[in-house]
Design a protein around this nucleic acid. Structure first.
Length: 287
DNA sequence: CTCCAGGTGCTGG
DNA sequence: CCAGCACATGGA
């Protein structure tokens, strides 16, 4: 399908939600995205409807005039189309919590993307003590130096870089990584890449583990504490019961809830609640 | 220029 | 267990 449609699907909100760092605005309602080694351009053509630019996603020079189904189903998966966000929104809107209700209204087009675990792991290791624009530029620089360069199919002469493979980052020296501007995180990134490339940390095997084990495995890496591990669990492994607590969420807890917010109330969708909160508090006008 | 960011590790109480 | 601090860097 060249279009994706689902209740609660808003490109702008997703792009600004801080869960992915390689989705960028081209123009109003139009975004580029690099994921799974591919480059695509996406347009919000109406509420809850996204158009996939077929020329950006398909290699017409390779003899294939017609894009195959799988060229597009990958994006349906990426945007988590089959998950029922409607029922989550409904449930939260029926709750008593005014702040949560406002947050859900404000970010009702948010979704939790299904991103690649390794990319999420490295990106969120870099994210510590950086703001989102700085994270984006650092990730981009990492890709430009250690990712594979590919052609943008719809833009002759233009190229993009996919996210580096674990081996590429493991082979890079710490000093070389430091030179990219990731600061003291260089050894964290390097040792995580080494762990993955050596098979000591088997990301595909982690898919099968329960969330406690997953968190513990991730936190055994140097430079991965509870917050980064939570982001990896939520954004890289789709664990909706895991809720990352960062400075913004702390601020909400303190200023709105007097340090008495209960995550337990939300159980297996706590991670989603966190995402609505995060997006709301960061983007809405100061209350 | 200063401030601070989707934190973590380490140290000392 | 918790508080304080160093850590590199760049966007605002």
């Amino acid at each position: 399908m060249l279009t994706m449609q689902s209740d609660h699907l808003n490109l702008k909100q997703i792009a600004e939600s801080g869960q992915c760092f390689r989705m960028n605005r081209i123009e109003e309602n139009k975004y580029s995205l690099i994921a799974y080694g591919k480059y695509v351009e996406l347009s919000q053509v109406s509420k809850n409807k996204i158009l996939i630019d077929p020329s950006s996603a398909v290699d017409s020079s390779s003899g294939e005039n017609f894009p195959s189904e799988e060229d597009f189903s990958i994006w349906e998966k990426y945007f988590d189309i089959e998950y029922d966000y409607g029922s989550v929104v409904k449930k939260l809107m029926e709750g008593k919590d005014d702040f949560i209700r406002n947050a859900v209204i404000y970010g009702s087009g948010l979704r939790i993307l299904r991103q690649e675990p390794f990319e999420i792991l490295i990106s969120f290791i870099i994210s510590q003590n950086k703001n989102i624009p700085a994270i984006k530029s650092a990730v981009e620089k990492l890709c430009q130096h250690y990712g594979e360069e590919k052609r943008c199919l719809n833009r002759p002469g233009e190229t993009y870089f996919d996210f580096p493979k674990p081996e590429a980052l493991a082979a890079a020296g710490k000093d070389a990584l430091r030179a990219l501007g990731i600061g003291y995180r260089d050894e964290y990134v390097h040792s995580a890449a080494v762990a993955v490339s050596e098979g000591r940390l088997d990301l595909s095997q982690l898919q099968n583990k329960d969330s406690d084990s997953l968190m513990n495995e991730l936190m055994s890496l140097k430079g991965v504490g509870k917050k980064v591990a939570s982001c990896v669990a939520l954004f890289g492994f789709h664990r909706f019961e895991i809720y990352p607590v960062d400075v913004w969420i702390n601020r909400v807890n303190k200023e709105i809830y007097k340090n008495k917010f209960s995550w337990q109330t939300y159980g297996d969708i706590a991670g989603l609640v966190q995402q609505y909160m995060f997006y709301y508090i960061r983007n809405c006008e100061r209350t």
